[in-house]
Every structure is written in C-alpha cells, then in structure tokens.
Design a protein around this nucleic acid. Sequence first.
RNA 1: CGGGAUGUGGCUCAGUCUGGUAGAGCGCUGCGUUCGGGACGCAGAGAUCGGAGGUUCAAAUCCUCUCAUCCCGACCA
Length: 580
Amino acid sequence: MRLSRYYIPTLKEDPADAEVVSHKLLMRAGMIRKLTSGIYNYLPLGLRSINKVGQIVREEMDRAGALEVLLPMVQPADLWKETGRWEYYGKELLRFKDRHDRDYCLGPTHEEVITDLVRGEIKSYKQLPVNLYQIQTKFRDEIRPRFGLMRGREFIMKDAYSFDKDEAGAEESYFSMFNAYKAAFSRIGLRFKPVQADSGAIGGDFSHEFMVLAETGEDTIASCLHCDFAANLEKAKVKAPANASIDESAVPPMEEVATPGAHTVEEVCDFLKISADKLVKTMLFVVDGKPVAGLVRGDRELNDVKLRNLVGGNEIELADEALVRKLTGAPVGFAGPAGLDPEVPVYADHELLAATDWVAGANKGDAHVLHLALGRDCEIVKYADLRVIEPTDACPECGGKIEFTKGIEVGHVFKLGLKYSKKMEATFLDENGKSQYMIMGCYGIGVSRIVASAIEQNNDENGCCFPPSIAPFEVCLISLGGKDQDVADKAEELYAELQKLGVDVAFDDRNERPGVKFAEADLIGYPMQLVLGGKGLKNGIIEAKDRKTDEKIELPLDTFAASFADWRNRIWNNWGLQTP
RNA sequence: CGGGAUGUGGCUCAGUCUGGUAGAGCGCUGCGUUCGGGACGCAGAGAUCGGAGGUUCAAAUCCUCUCAUCCCGACCA
C-alpha cells in the first residue's frame, strides 16, 4: 500500500476529549474518529488493526472447532421476554419500535438469538456438541462510556456459544475455549492473565476473565505471589478467620449512646474514640426487589457481589435514602443489626465471629449502641465471606502473600449451564429418547478493546509501538527520495520485493520532508521501519529500525531479501511471536 | 441520575471577569525556497463564537432555558 494514496489523518496535538493514552494515540494516529459519545468511526488504519485481531481470534476459534455465523444486530423483544431479560437487562439495552409498533432492541449479546436458532435446528444428541461464534458489532447503552475504544457503547465483539449434551461435554467445551483464548491472546502479543471471575447468580465456579495488565484498567486483580491464584477483586474469596471461641456472656448489656451528626465510620470512631475494627458496619441493599442487610467490620468493605450470590439474587443495589429511613426509622448513617425491621434478613461477614462487644448503629437518628453481641442481640441469617479482599489478606488458596494489579478485561469465558436452555426450551433427545436441556457456555472477546489495550501496553512518548501481529502494517518503507530519482527507483524496487515476500508493507512514497515521515511512522507505530536515503543507497545499505526498542541496524541491499527476513524474525521473536 | 468542567474556523487554544470592528498556532489552497527527525517566506480560503430566548444603543462576553462533550460519583452507613 502506498501512503501517497492512503488516508491517515494524523494529529499533532492530543484531542481535548481524550484522557487515556490509547484514546489519544488512536485519534492522533488517524485510526479512529468519534461520531458521538461512545461511538466511533474506524478509519482505514484502525480497521486494519481490528481486522488483524479478528483474524487471529477467528483462526483460534476455528482451530477449537467453533463455527462462524453472523446473527442479526436487531432482535425482537419476544425472545428477551422469554428469558426475562427484557425486564432485567436494564437501561443498557437499547430498545425501539418498528413501524408496526413492535418492540425490538439492539443486541448487546446474543444468548437469546443463538438459543432460539439452535433449539429450532438441533433435536438429537447426535448433533451435539456444537459451538457457534460470530464477530460482530454490539451495542450496549453504557451508563458512562469512556476512554475511547476501551468502553464504547458500540464495539466489536467475538461471541461464542457452546451447546452440550452433558456436564462432561460442557466442561470440555469450556476449557477448549479457555485454551483457545490463551492461544489467541498470546498470538496477539498481549501480556495477560486469566483470573477467576464472578459467575453471578447462575452458580458454578466456571467463569474466568482474561485481563490485560495495564495501569488504566478498570478492574482490580488480586493474585498470589506464590501459587496460581488470581481473581477479580469482586470474586476473590477471603479466608475465614481461625475459629475463635468468643464468650458473649461477658459482654455488658447493650447501651445506647448519642452520636450527634456522626454518620460515617470515621465520624463515629472519632466521636467515641474507638478504632474502626470495633465497629459493625450495617449496609442495606435491595436484592431483586427485597431488602437485605449485610454486616462487615467497620474498617472493611462489603463486597456486594458476594452478598448477592449468598442471597441467590440477580440484581443488587444499595437501598436509597427513603428505604433506609423506612427500615431503620433513622436517616442514613445509623443503621444497625439490632432493632432493624424484622423483615430484613441480616447476613454477616464471617470475620465478625472472631470478636464480640461491638459498636453499631442504633436505628435511631444521632445514636449508636455499645456492647452489641451479635448472637445475643440480633438474628443473623448466616455468617459468610462478604467482604472485599485487601492487599494485606492472605491468599485464600495457599495462605501466601497477594498483590493487587489493574487489568483490562478483554475476554470472558462463562459456563451458563441451563439458564437459557430451560427458559427457552432448548432441548434434545438423548440416547434413551428422553428430552434433555442443552448445557450452554458463552465466551466473549472484546476485539476493538484489544486494539486499545495493546496500545495501553505498548507506547512511548512518540506514539504507538504495536506488536507486529496486529499492527495496521508490519513494515513502513520510508523513501527519502525527494528529487533523487535513484533513491525513488530503488525504493519502488524494494517495495515490490517486500510485497513479493508476502510482507504487509506501507510504502511512504509521499512527497513529504523526512521529519514528517519519521514522526508519523513513530506515531502510528509500525513495528519495523525501513529507511532508504541517498547516502545509504550509495553505500549499498538500507536502515532498519525496531520501533519498540529503537534499535537501528543496516541491511545490505545486495542481499536484502535474506537479511530482511533475518531481521524480521528477530523482531517477531523479541515480541515472543512467531513470524508468519 | 447526582456533582464538576468545557463548548469560539478542520484541530489545539486565547478573548468572557470589566459588553464596543472575532484572534493566534497547527492544518488546508496557490506560488517560491527547502529536503535525514512534525521546514521557511509570500498570498489566500475558512467562524453568524453549540442552540433558543432575554437584558442593552450595542452581547462570544451579562441573565434564563436548552443541547452536546469530557471528568468524578452513582456501594462504605
């Protein structure tokens, strides 16, 4: 491809509305343009990169035996009503009506459509397992789109869905996708980590997220320095405390004290001159429409995902002020487990079993209670792991030291089980002629997000440093011909030769000054730059620059093909990648 | 949805407080010079200052409403 006939609108300055480096560079390198909030145009260069990611993912899916399909973006409401998600999915689901006033939505994911397709076609155990995937634009009306391609409303996703006849098969499908993901992300050249993830109310331990390690990640990962344990913060288990035998009989009777204006843990502790670990924090939630209370120690954070899973609900949200008043009879800040509305089930973090004689809210404005004994003074439905893991906690699996890192979720594999097949009657006849539900799994990869993630991991002050696997072009051949016809002619010759070698090359044959060509090549981040100038031609060499390391070498022109091939291999190998 | 900020040529911004002829740099067009790290000179094109309403002799500037974009939050009692 000749840059003289290509369209790459680069920018010298960072766009005003870009915050993170990938967003800035995608804009500056002329790869994307914003159409409206969270919705982007993919320009020629950006699309090339996206397509390269897509192609690698496609190859790994195919290798794993999945079959590519393409499902509609526009989906009828009826299907979503069957699974109940028309109500549940919330505002992220963009709904609209057609001319006949029928309800539709834009597909944020395709469980309904795929299940509908498969239930109509697959009737026998002999046809299972089957795994169908697509690479397609998704639309989710995100509450707050941000960071360019990182969290868009419209984005490109690979989604796969497996259907199996039994548990063993479903597990096999799951791990076959898990491995395909590892292979794909490795081939792309990302530094990533699979982590345990929340599987929601659906149950089972079969959910992993694939995290790209980057500071700008929106997720936090807890991982063990000694064993394989790694989990999303919302999933990471906290070890139960050693069984301490506590004696509540020694606790003095509960006593109410005035704590005027002390709403927060900090204020209460200051006022009563106690440390936060002496306090029980009571948080009120609504799970699927019903109020629930969760207790954690004052210095801890309650993990709402754990509470939701414990209760067995689908949706959890914090109780609003009006509900808090109704349940506690007090403004926000004075809730406690004793004297709460008896309709509210109270769950407590198991850490609270390790001590007694607590301070808690009195369910009364400007008041707290002292000497609360949980077993004596209130009814706890269950003690369980409810809090967010902290860096000082021990690894829940081996007890070793853990660390926190930030990550960008680029893939998620999920064992769905019967959730959709039951609701949508996706059944088949087994060997005995008995009707069974198909066991499903679903597997997503954020294709456009991967391009952003790759830039987050690979950039410097001059621009992008793409891994060669997904760079828009692998090589940029820069001709410093100008008026020097010999240089221009030789560059043409090399361009033809590179194409013959099957190299993905951008040929900068533009009538631009050298500085412009260099700056733009660095900005765009072609992994390899070849620079042919007058001096080099005279000496029979061409300069070769590794964008990532900035290492420059000279390749002899008389043995160009061979020396280039060597150099190219080195570049790919340095990325831990195999030359195509 | 709550809080904050910003909307001025294609881009990045100044001008707004204190009302009085709409600016700069980059980019773009033409001509010339230049040609190994985002060149220079000259000549140009391009903005009813996000939109609507109001105050005023006069509004980018003040007031009201509205729209858009970005950031933070929307769990810590």
